[in-house]
Design a protein around this nucleic acid. Structure first.
Length: 215
DNA sequence: AACTCGGGGCA
DNA sequence: TGCCCAGAGTT
């Protein structure tokens, strides 16, 4: 397993390749950003950004979306995957924000996760990106990259990965670490054919060395 | 722990 | 074309 110092070093090296790693979802309000993150599950940010302007213009606040017809929302987002579930989540989410949180997007992980369609990853992204609250969202990219680098145990589940990374990395880099690992996973350490031969992290990557050796 | 939803991205 | 995903909820 990589030491805390090696983990931080890896994050810094990722930052040299992707200094501007950030969420590519666009939204004008906390509420709209939350909707965008919910919709982005198992789908590309690009696909989400294509349809959010119309959606956000139609439903400006939780109060308006709470009264919406599900089928209307479905038709507005049907170009992305899982759109039937997501349309239900979006409306139910708006209804709960109105009924339980006075129309304001809550700012704690527990409260965010109580919203329909909001799991741990979505909650952490909203905390970090929307409110600037330190959080380290673990998605499949972060899972793959941190396991290949041996930042976490191979057997670790999402919760264990989050806790291990938060313990090893200083709070000040949690948000950057999340987005750098996402970029790393998307462009360098891809799922099917990682670019190990040209990887700046090859020197400290157990799996990378193994892959280079066997190829 | 396994299953479902579903169009997108990539081989 | 076919296969695997930039998750969350349910059972």
């Amino acid at each position: 397993m990589l030491s805390a110092e090696e983990c931080l070093k890896a994050i810094e090296i990722m930052g040299e390749s992707f200094p501007d790693a950030h969420s590519s979802l666009t939204a004008d309000t906390d509420f709209h950003f939350l909707l965008a993150v919910i919709m982005s599950a198992q789908t590309t940010d690009k696909a989400v950004n294509l349809l959010t302007p119309k959606l956000f213009e139609t439903y400006k606040t939780p109060y308006e979306l709470a009264k919406a017809d599900i089928t209307d929302v479905m038709s507005l987002i049907k170009t992305i995957g899982l759109y039937r579930n997501k349309a239900k989540y979006l409306v139910a989410c708006a209804q709960k924000i109105v009924s339980d949180f006075a129309g304001i997007v809550p700012q704690t992980r527990k409260e965010l996760m109580s919203l329909p369609g909001v799991g741990r990853k979505t909650a952490d992204v909203v905390l970090a990106e929307c409110f600037g609250i330190p959080a380290l969202a673990v998605d499949t990219h972060v899972t793959r990259v941190s396991k290949r680098l041996r930042m976490v145990a191979q057997s670790a589940d999402v919760l264990k990965i989050e806790r291990t990374l938060m313990k090893k990395l200083p709070e000040s880099v949690w948000i950057d670490a999340h987005f750098r690992m996402i970029y790393w996973g998307r462009y360098q350490c891809t799922a099917r054919s990682p670019k190990c031969e040209t990887c700046p992290l090859l020197g400290i990557c157990a799996e990378g060395k193994q892959r280079v050796k066997t190829n």
